[in-house]
């Protein structure tokens, strides 16, 4: 009998868990569904769930009217560029703090984290004016640098917690065998650190892709990424639900899929190893 009860209980738990999960996911599901509706059916009352005339017209319209791929390409360049640059600068720093810790390593890490605490809006005016004077407004270079700086503390912290888990003895053994510092990093450390570096890359690409303060304020047209693209729908264009949905789906789909792959690493990454 105990087994029957436990199956009943498991069914009940499953029901509630799925219900909650579907409620949380519903806005996304609804957006994707609406993106395939003809505009007139998107505002039908009562709403149509699946029994509408499925169409791809909205996607074609959004690309034709608003040149989606230009924005998409800018997002790709900014997300990959800023993350790549950040990891390139961050790896040596994290390496040295993890394997040659000094008296101030902890303070240094805390200080790096504290730069994240500084509200971006606090330095909006000077950054805007400096960018204007240097001709960096509305350039991908400028945005790559700013987004990189926004995420660098997180990149260093994540790499640091991953590197910390690599046993230092292995490095010492390599050193004893006469490996130079460069060889040590290239042949011993890097292979062991690849999973950590990969999840750092993944998570920071997601953060950079979704960055919506600097990209909205420093980009105009040329360098505008998807955050800017979608903000163009704020009104009154946003009332064309089917087109808004198609645009939204195009803006979130790539990163949502990346996110699903990264969710296992997300927790330890974003809590800097404090929760595992």
């Amino acid at each position: 009998m105990a087994r029957a009860v436990s199956i009943r209980r498991k069914s009940l738990n499953t029901f509630w868990a799925w219900l909650v999960a579907l409620i949380l996911f519903f806005p996304i599901l609804w957006t994707v569904l609406t993106s395939f509706k003809p505009e007139a059916q998107a505002v039908a009352s009562p709403p149509l769930f699946v029994d509408f005339d499925w169409t791809l017209q909205n996607y074609r319209d959004v690309q034709a009217q608003r040149a989606y791929f230009g924005y998409f390409w800018n997002s790709v360049v900014i997300a990959l560029g800023s993350t790549g640059l950040g990891v390139l600068i961050g790896i040596p720093a994290a390496w040295s703090m993890a394997f040659v810790p000094g008296r101030h390593t902890r303070d240094l890490l805390m200080w790096m984290l504290s730069t994240k605490m500084m509200p971006a809006v606090g330095v909006l005016v000077p950054i805007y004016l400096i960018f204007r004077d240097l001709g960096l407004l509305d350039t991908r270079t400028g945005l790559v640098v700013v987004v990189m700086l926004m995420n660098l503390p997180i990149i260093i912290w994540m790499l640091y917690t991953y590197f910390k888990e690599i046993p230092g003895e292995i490095l010492e053994a390599a050193r004893m065998d006469g490996a130079t510092l460069g060889k040590e990093i290239l042949y011993v450390l890097t292979p062991m650190a690849v999973p950590g570096i990969a999840s750092t890359l993944l998570l920071n690409i997601i953060l950079a892709w979704n960055e919506a303060f600097w990209t909205l304020n420093l980009a105009v047209v040329k360098a505008a990424p998807l955050s800017k693209f979608i903000s163009g729908f704020s009104s009154p264009e946003g009332l064309f639900y089917a087109k808004l949905s198609a645009a939204s789906t195009m803006a979130i789909a790539p990163i949502l899929i990346l996110g699903w792959f990264s969710q296992k690493q997300l927790v330890r990454g974003l809590t800097f190893g404090a929760v595992k």
């Binding site: 949380l24 996911f25 806005p27 996304i28 609804w30 957006t31 997601i206 892709w209 979704n210 919506a212 909205l216 998807l226 955050s227 979608i230 903000s231 729908f233 704020s234 946003g238 808004l244 949905s245 939204s248 803006a251 979130i252 990163i255 949502l256 990346l258 996110g259 699903w260 969710q263 997300l266």
Partner: peptide, 14 residues
């Protein structure tokens, strides 16, 4: 976990 990956302006407009 999905809502976490949605770009803020997209979430707000939806």
């Amino acid at each position: 976990i999905s809502p976490f990956f949605i770009m803020p302006p997209v979430a707000a407009l939806i």
